[in-house]
Design a protein around this nucleic acid. Structure first.
Lengths: 103, 103
DNA sequence: CCTATCGTTCTATGTTCGTCGAACATCGAA
DNA sequence: TTCGATGTTCGACGAACATAGAACGATAGG
């Protein structure tokens, strides 16, 4: 399948980003990505169904938070550098207050 | 009527705060409060019904974002200092990127 | 007391969300 | 080509949400 669509930088909306980060599962994903850079799909098997995880990834992707790369049958996600360029320090400001979570 | 309930500081949850701020109307309210300190209810008549505005205020209040004070029949709201104490700089980090508003 | 004002709560309606299972699509390997 | 692994999409469900109108409650002023 062709790479999934990502919004353009100018299409990224602040409230959409906040909404994407307002879910514990998604915030946990973002926190992991901020720590490790890029992660394969399988790194996120945290007790939720595959389809649910896919849904959360879609929300993050459509909000412009993560980048989605497909390599063979595997998928890799990472934080979008454009997000940091558009909202410098925003993600870090939020993740700073995330405590004691086990992804 | 007795003052409405506000969550304790330790009950404030990051994702709830983010969710509260992920709505354009509420983010606009918070932006106004950050600028002016305290505002009366009537300052927010931005085209939505009174009951809807009351609902948004409730969401912000229950998330621990705003303080609600009643003086006679009038209501006044302001940002909760405890929020800044618990998540220092969070609100400012978010509001920094809010552009082109029309409260 | 009566009334107007102001805000809350209730009820209702339509939308969105989070979740899952099932079906589908894609790719690598046998 | 067939199979298995990996995600995506679809259909469905209950829960939560955004919105508005109507009813209610508290208060200030006559």
């Amino acid at each position: 399948m062709v790479q999934l669509g990502h919004p353009k930088v100018q299409e990224i909306v602040l409230t959409d980003v906040l909404h994407a980060l307002s879910d514990p599962v998604r915030l946990s994903i973002v926190a992991d990505l901020a720590e490790t850079g890029e992660l394969g799909w399988s790194a996120f098997d945290c007790g939720i169904a595959n389809s649910t995880l896919s849904h959360h990834m879609k929300v993050l992707r459509l909000a412009g938070v993560i980048n989605h790369r497909k390599d063979g049958t595997r998928c890799f996600v990472s934080l979008r550098p454009e997000l940091e360029k558009k909202f410098p320090g925003l993600v870090a400001s939020i993740l700073r207050f995330r405590k004691g979570k086990a992804s």
